[in-house]
Design a protein around this nucleic acid. Structure first.
Length: 418
RNA sequence: GUGGGUGUAGCUCAGUUGGCAGAGCGCUAGGUUGUGGUCCUGGAUGUCGAGGGUUCGAGCCCCUUCACUCACCCCA
């Protein structure tokens, strides 16, 4: 038996980095006023097809979709935004507070061919803000991302930023793009030809070199922004500059989900091969209404947790394994019984204590204490019990002191609480 | 979905023209009747990814399949 393709175990020896990221992210979100939300892993398929877009790769070929016993079409969530928007509408959160900020962490599912930094079950750290149209929140989200990555010690990242316009300016851009392409259709790949009808914007994102060549001088959304979008993007840029956040304006950044409007961004790394996006986000001012809520601006980002961890591993940012405070060596039945109660009492007081009940030799137990990286070893055999002098050995200095049985546990607690 | 590479001990990997399944690390026991890391000696551990075929004989050759991996694609 083994895990199914693209799914994997994250083992205890690798968990430290995950916890470090979780802790830093939670601390940061808390400081910026984000509240944690937990959403289901399974939703009605319709939720994703309507929000992400019928013509996107995610919906067309990557979702885990199946019929349950009653025949309802269900899908394992391929991303978090749709569910959070659904929850926001379902619980009429707009009615209790005009501004809501959420974050969540958890698994997402997409049936792609696995690759470095790409799994079928992968984890995202996600943040969403509802009810703020101001460009300051766009800058702030990008700032939060760069701040988190800075705290985690990441280097070699770059922020790519673009504006995709809004329903007011997009039609004129789309016309310009289609006019531009009209005479060059024979040089575009099949995928792009398909996109002309379904979602022309996506053509800009094509990675095929021949298409890239053709699109070298293609019109950009940036050149067709309406005044509102123009001002909005200008504020985003100047705010980031003032904050000292490095970014690149990337007019070919389109993003693969249809709901994005105005600001879109990606944080890219050079250390993961083809999987360059470590985080991505954007504004989606039409999505809440599209899914049946009131007109509400929205914006959010997702971090690829697995990728983040892999980058950190490559940069050697793993925290040190925690050492054991005390290892108990008890020789003989009587000492073992006493030792059991001592170790539990120490554990209750938060002291990392372990003992081995397998009846091994002194030497084997010392070796184990060493392997567990124990700071101290307590040695209790028949002799020590008779003489009422339990030995405490400092494994680094090799110094040994004797402690009486009656005050042993409080004495040890005193030592370790220092 | 398409293409390339790789699957041998827990891990990293050797394995010659087809001829007894190997090393290092790790694990374990001992050297030291009760004191770790270094050192020395011994021991255990294999569905050679799986299934089939060729052959007196297959880790090695052939077919099928699965997994991993990298790239395309897409995205986080």
């Amino acid at each position: 038996m083994q895990t199914i393709r693209g799914f994997r175990d994250i083992l205890p020896e690798n968990i430290a980095l995950w916890q470090k990221v979780e802790k830093e992210a939670t601390r940061l979100f808390d400081a910026f006023g984000f509240k944690e939300i937990r959403i289901p892993v399974l939703e009605k398929t319709q939720l994703f097809s309507r929000s992400i877009g019928e013509a996107t790769d995610i919906v067309e070929k990557e979702m885990y979709t199946f019929a349950d016993r009653k025949g309802d079409k269900l899908t394992l969530r391929p991303e978090a935004t749709a569910s959070i928007v659904r929850s926001y509408i379902q619980h009429k959160m707009y009615a209790t507070d005009p501004i809501r900020k959420f974050f969540m962490m958890g698994p997402m599912f997409r049936r792609e061919r696995p690759q470095k930094g790409r799994y079928r079950q992968f984890y995202q750290i996600d943040a969403e803000v509802f009810g703020v149209e101001s460009a300051y929140i766009d800058s702030q989200l990008i700032f939060i991302l760069t701040e988190l990555f800075k705290r985690l010690g990441l280097t070699g990242l770059s922020a790519h930023v673009n504006s995709l316009g809004c329903p007011d300016c997009r039609p004129s851009f789309q016309r310009a793009l289609l006019d531009f392409i009209a005479s060059k259709k024979d040089r575009l790949c099949d995928n792009c030809l398909r996109r002309i009808d379904k979602n022309p914007l996506r053509i800009l994102d094509c990675k095929v070199t021949s298409c890239k060549d053709v699109l070298q001088d293609a019109p950009a959304t940036l050149d067709h922004l309406c005044n509102h979008c123009e001002d909005h993007f200008a504020t985003v840029k100047t705010t980031l500059e003032t904050q000292g956040v490095d970014f690149i304006v990337d007019k070919s950044l389109v993003r693969g989900l249809d709901y994005y409007t105005r600001t879109a961004w990606e944080i890219q790394t050079t250390t993961l091969g083809a999987q360059s996006a470590v985080a991505g986000g954007g504004r989606y001012d039409g999505l809440v209404k599209e899914l049946g809520g009131p007109q509400t601006p929205g914006i959010g980002f997702a971090i690829g947790f697995d990728r983040l961890v892999e980058v950190m591993e490559q940069l050697d940012k793993a925290p040190q394994a925690t050492a054991l405070d005390l290892f108990l060596i008890c020789l003989g039945d009587m000492a073992t019984e006493k030792g059991y109660h001592w170790s539990c009492a120490l554990n209750q007081n938060g002291i990392r204590t372990e003992m081995d009940f397998r009846g091994k030799s002194m030497k084997a137990l010392m070796k184990r204490a060493n392997k567990l990286n124990a700071h101290y070893v307590l040695i209790a055999g028949e002799d020590e019990l008779i003489q009422n002098a339990i030995i405490l050995r400092d494994m680094n200095t090799k110094e040994q002191v004797s402690l009486p049985v009656e005050t042993l546990v409080p004495e040890l607690i005193k030592i370790f609480k220092k």
